[in-house]
Design a protein around this nucleic acid. Structure first.
Length: 715
DNA sequence: AGCACGCCGACT
DNA sequence: GTCGGCGTGCTC
């Protein structure tokens, strides 16, 4: 602001449009049932549809509704539905100073509609500014965001923050490329290996909306198969959207799409590109220049024109879960999109989540699977090393590597690279009973006990020393380190096979691919590089450690990670072998041996239905200080069939790692209650929680509680 | 969250 | 009278 603007306050012609005088008194007296935007003196308003319905960009729940603003004549043309605007939004009826009304500060928003009248019975403030004429929030995206907000008991503004990227003026100025005409429909290619693969592609190409849960055969062809599904959809004249868990998977699908369709027909939306480039890509999609998108979870909202197909790859990967409020899951967002847009749906992976099995079970989607013969042809041979084998195995106790694994590695190294999967450190509790392998927990806070240099145990959460541990399960008093990290495993293997190069891939040092020459590749789950020509063998070490987590998903998750590694191994017919160090009687281990993730998920689903666990019933977690949680729960008008479990104390967050939403701040005691409803009452539960939360926020009373629909980590 | 409104007690 | 305490409720 220059100094001359500050004196006298008489901006005259140059006054911004919102600073128009309001005859305040007359408005207050009359309380007309319909606000006429004409209550603004001297304001020349838009001739037609002078009211703009605006979504104010504040995430707070009690502001989760639209506000009407008057459209000044000079903004008439630009103030179209979907554009970003700035409006005055503030308390009370505003101060009137020097004949000029000043509301609160300027805040951002989106125009959602232009109307002839407002049903607000008060004077309307005028739009302050149209930020840009680019209509970024279309009707379909708005409808989707609304559905996601409802489903997750969150606010529309929060969802839009995830769905609409921040503006970059430079990216908007750049014209998007001319759209290319639809490509030819591809042939079935490797989809022919699946029972209904060809039919699925044909349905896509002819404009249909088939919904499928696809259990992908092991091997590298999955990304090409996704590309074919996209191409078939494009051939029908519609758009397609693919969401994958990480940048590496996105790059693979991107490569497959480029190979199949050439450049220019699809956009890659990942976090790797900077904000400006990202927005430019997003705009190209919104403008219809690009009809297909592949990306990581933020791409789930990509405004693809005339959507014909949504696809998710590996929905069990937790990076599909958005960490920002209201924490929607890509699978469920795409499920909503498929329903709202009546488009095709493809949920694929090497494993099979319980949610995926449920979609098939309740008839919403159909299975897209290969026959057993094809599975046998593509899958590696899986062998197990259980406790009995280990007990007999003197060598294993000395070198930590069971004889069978040793042999498989040596044999494999004669033909190519060998993958060694080691659970990530910190993924599991660190010490366990040497006898029954129950994780050793702190008797005060249930945190994981860690070995100290001096031999004394210390709790990883509360820091208390433990000098007299004994196992509460079996009474044993000897401990063993649970998991040996990737680095030490690599060192040990390096000594064991001195002639072979050892490479490691982990969160820090991600290897993308390794050559097909003999090498030991030590990797944590999810970081496995792809080997040229496939691995000759894979050793899945400390498999039991992945299964002892006190989590509903431990079994499903372990199986998913094993299968992801096993899928990189050559087929059995080419000598591909997987050795998993885990009890062969356990259900996930058996499913791996038979390479039958769907059967595992179906059985798991039946069990969850029986026990009333998600996803068969819907759950919500309410966490916060004990008094606040109790108070909140009594305030919620629960659906009649809701059931409250708990509350129980929430263990404090492990120090060092960033605190997750739902965990108490350091030094505070929190509790968490779970609310459970049977199938069909999920929407009612979300709505009840949202209403109660809104009322609570509006009053600003007491300490805040956190509400999360579908909490991922219920023990 | 801010912030104004308004209904009560103590003051010039 | 009227100044200002903070409890309540609104924000177009």
């Amino acid at each position: 602001m220059s100094s001359k603007d500050g004196v006298g306050g008489g901006g005259g012609d140059e006054a911004p449009p919102e600073q128009l005088a309001l005859i305040r008194e007359s408005v207050r007296r009359s309380r007309a049932p319909r606000a006429k935007p004409r209550t603004w003196r001297g304001a020349a308003l838009a001739g037609e549809l002078p009211v703009a319905r605006v979504l104010v960009d504040k995430g707070v729940l009690h502001l989760d509704r639209y506000f009407d603003y008057a459209v000044p004549e000079e903004l008439d043309e630009q103030a179209q539905p979907g554009v970003r605007v700035r409006v005055r939004f503030g308390a009370g009826r505003g101060r009137v100073r020097e004949g000029r009304r000043e509301g609160g500060g300027l805040i951002d928003g989106f125009i959602v509609e232009r109307r002839a009248e407002s049903d607000y019975s008060g004077p309307l403030a005028a739009l302050a500014q149209v930020v840009s004429p680019e209509p970024v929030l279309g009707a379909e995206l708005l409808r989707l965001a609304r559905a996601v907000a409802d489903r997750y008991a969150g606010s529309l503004a929060d969802v839009l923050q995830l769905a609409v990227p921040p503006r970059s003026a430079r990216a908007e100025r750049r014209p998007s490329p001319e759209p290319l005409p639809p490509p030819q429909a591809p042939d079935a290619g490797s989809w022919a290996r699946y029972e209904n693969g060809g039919a699925y592609l044909e349905a896509l190409a002819s404009g249909g909306a088939p919904r499928a849960v696809w259990n992908a055969l092991p091997g590298p062809l999955w990304s090409e198969e996704i590309a074919r599904a996209v191409a078939a959809t494009l051939a029908s004249g519609r758009g397609a959207l693919v969401v994958v868990p990480d940048g590496r998977a996105a790059a693979r699908v991107d490569g497959a799409l480029t190979a199949l369709l050439g450049e220019g027909r699809h956009a890659l939306l990942t976090a790797d590109s900077g904000p400006e480039k990202r927005y430019a890509q997003w705009l190209a999609v919104r403008r219809g220049s690009v009809r297909a998108v592949v990306g990581t979870r933020a791409a789930m909202f990509a405004p693809v024109r005339d959507l014909g197909l949504v696809a998710v790859w590996d929905d069990g990967d937790d990076s599909h879960s958005e960490p920002h409020a209201p924490q929607p899951h890509a699978r469920d967002v795409l499920l909503l999109r498929a329903t709202l847009d009546r488009c095709a749906f493809l949920l694929g992976g090497f494993g099979c989540t319980v949610e995926a099995a449920q979609l098939v079970e309740n008839g919403w989607a159909r299975p897209l699977v290969a026959g057993r013969e094809q599975v046998r042809r593509a899958a590696p041979l899986v062998r197990t090393v259980g406790d009995e084998d280990l007990a007999r195995d003197e060598a294993a106790r000395a070198a930590r590597l069971p004889t069978l694994a040793w042999q498989a590695a040596r044999e494999g190294l004669r033909h190519g690279p060998v993958l060694v999967q080691v659970p990530r450190r910190g993924y599991t509790p660190r010490m366990a009973c040497a006898h029954c392998r129950a994780p050793a927990r702190c008797r005060h806070c249930s945190g994981p006990l860690e070995g100290q240099d001096g031999g004394v145990l210390r709790c990883g959460w509360c820091g208390r020393d433990e000098s007299a541990w004994h196992c509460p399960e079996c009474g044993g008093f000897r401990l063993r380190a649970q998991v040996v990290g990737a680095r030490r495993t690599a060192e040990e293997l390096g000594r064991a096979f001195p002639a072979v190069p050892v490479r490691t891939s982990g969160r820090e040092h991600l290897l993308d691919t390794v050559p097909g020459t003999p090498a030991l590749v030590v990797s944590t789950p999810g970081a496995e590089p792809v080997a040229e020509g496939g691995y000759a063998a894979a050793l899945l070490l400390d498999g039991w450690a992945m299964l002892v987590r006190p989590d509903l998903r431990a079994g499903e998750d372990a199986l998913r990670r094993w299968m992801a590694a096993g899928a990189l191994v050559r087929p059995q017919g080419e000598g591909g072998t997987v050795v998993v160090v885990a009890e062969p009687t356990l259900r996930p281990v058996q499913a791996l041996v038979r390479w039958d993730p769907v059967g595992h998920a179906v059985r798991e689903l039946a069990e969850r239905a029986e026990l009333g666990f998600p996803p068969v019933s819907r759950m919500a977690a309410v966490s916060g200080p004990p008094a606040a949680v109790t108070e909140f729960l009594t305030a919620v008008e629960m659906p009649s069939d809701a059931e409250v479990l708990g509350p129980v104390p929430v263990p404090p967050a492990p120090p060092g790692r960033p605190r997750r939403a739902g965990a108490p701040p350091p030094g505070e005691h929190w509790e968490r209650a779970l609310v459970r409803v049977p199938p069909g009452s999920g929407a009612a539960l979300a709505s009840a929680l949202k209403t109660a939360q809104a009322a609570r926020m509006a009053r600003g009373s007491g300490e805040p509680v956190r509400v999360r629909i579908d909490p991922p980590d219920i023990g």
